[in-house]
């Protein structure tokens, strides 16, 4: 039948991003927070690719590629930090890691 309007892709991207934010704000385990971050990054990737299709330019793919690379690097370092936090504080609750305050 008809083709899929591009706005549906964008709305899907928005929904996934919102889900990622919800996970970041409402979950208490550090790992789950990281997973929500990855979800957010994926949603943004979808948005990039969708617009790249819209403009028939491949630059969007390049940006998406870079986002992926950075997400991978960030995941590696972030998980190493989580390991350190677990080693030092013995907890994985994000609310317990709040000593940088006034």
């Amino acid at each position: 039948m008809g083709h899929v309007p591009l706005s549906w892709y964008l709305i899907l991207s928005v929904i996934l991003f919102a889900l990622g934010v919800a996970g970041f704000v409402y979950r208490k385990s550090v790992i789950t927070v990281f997973l929500s971050i990855e979800l957010m990054l994926n949603a943004v990737n979808l948005s990039f690719v969708a617009f790249s299709y819209q403009m028939h330019r491949i630059d969007g793919h390049i940006y998406s590629f870079f986002v992926m690379v950075v997400a991978a690097a960030e995941a590696a370092v972030g998980l190493a930090i989580i390991l350190t936090i677990f080693k030092n504080r013995g907890t994985l609750q994000i609310d317990e890691v709040d000593s940088m305050k006034l």
């Binding site: 990855e38 994926n42 690719v49 590629f65 997400a71």
Partner: peptide, 14 residues
């Protein structure tokens, strides 16, 4: 959406 390379990269990397 016609993004072949990105799809493959997504599966492999992510």
């Amino acid at each position: 959406l016609g993004a072949e390379f990105i799809a493959m990269a997504q599966m492999i990397v992510y």
